[in-house]
């Protein structure tokens, strides 16, 4: 069953730059998908459209049965509760502890304290940071910070986890750890993961579905694919 369907998506920015040309693709529930491509190929734009940070100029984007392209601004929060998002720069709150950073995501959607606590600890356990709950982000390594960000993204049990170059700031060893965590989430929770990356080694090692973008066009979509040298 498809969780995501993109149909004839075009995205042109106000400055006239077209980021995505006629993208049509389906992603099934529970899939682990790499979106690869060089700088400016449209990876980030594609990811942003999936959590409705950007609206497509034309075309249809359906995420979990909701047409995201037509979603009103005031309703975007409903989509965001079903989608977890991880960035290259972690985006943690420096004044909050690891626990508070993760629980923050539950608190701001009005979850009861007990439930927030339970799910926060569960998420932190899954990413292997249960022993660092009282630490502040600046006391953690880059890899650990990214794991906190992942815990925050999955604390609400989203169906979809979007990762925009999550290993971009990390060395190969830490990147490997992050990928292990993501794979664990994909397998254990059945969360669909879409990850934009240009880390060739990761893509080739993991052998997942690979969508290749070049100059805003989808040029290939392979199951158990590898890093396409064309990009």
């Amino acid at each position: 069953m498809d969780l995501i369907r993109l149909k004839n998506i075009y995205k042109q920015y106000k400055n006239g730059v077209t980021a995505i040309y006629d993208a049509t693709i389906s992603i099934r529930k529970g899939a682990f998908v790499f979106v690869i491509g060089g700088s400016g190929s449209g990876k980030s734009t594609l990811i942003k459209m999936l959590y409705r940070e950007e609206k497509p100029t034309s075309g249809q984007i359906v995420v979990g049965g909701v047409n995201v392209a037509k979603l009103r601004n005031s309703k975007v929060y409903k989509l965001r509760r079903k989608v977890g998002i991880v960035f290259q720069d972690y985006r943690l709150l420096p004044k909050l502890t690891v626990y508070e950073n993760v629980a923050f995501a539950m608190e701001v959607i009005g979850a009861p304290k007990k439930m927030a606590r339970h799910q926060t600890l569960k998420a932190l356990e899954l990413v292997g940071l249960k022993n660092k709950v009282h630490n502040y982000p600046n006391q953690l390594s880059g890899g650990e910070q990214q794991r906190v960000a992942i815990a925050r993204a999955i604390v609400n049990n989203p169906k979809l986890l979007l990762c925009d170059e999550p290993t971009g700031n990390l060395d190969p060893e830490r990147s490997k750890e992050i990928m292990e965590v993501l794979e664990l989430i994909n397998e254990k929770r059945g969360t669909t993961i879409i990850m934009a990356t240009h880390d060739k080694e990761i893509v080739n090692r993991m052998r997942k579905q690979v969508v290749t973008l070049k100059d805003g066009r989808i040029i290939s979509n392979e199951e158990e694919g590898t890093y396409n040298e064309v990009v």
């Binding site: 965001r80 509760r81 985006r91 709150l93 923050f104 995501a105 701001v108 609400n156």
Partner: peptide, 16 residues
Amino acid sequence: KREISIMRLVGANNFT
């Protein structure tokens, strides 16, 4: 600003 942008990302509504 940073906090607000994270709130938006994780699905806080306008009221919150």
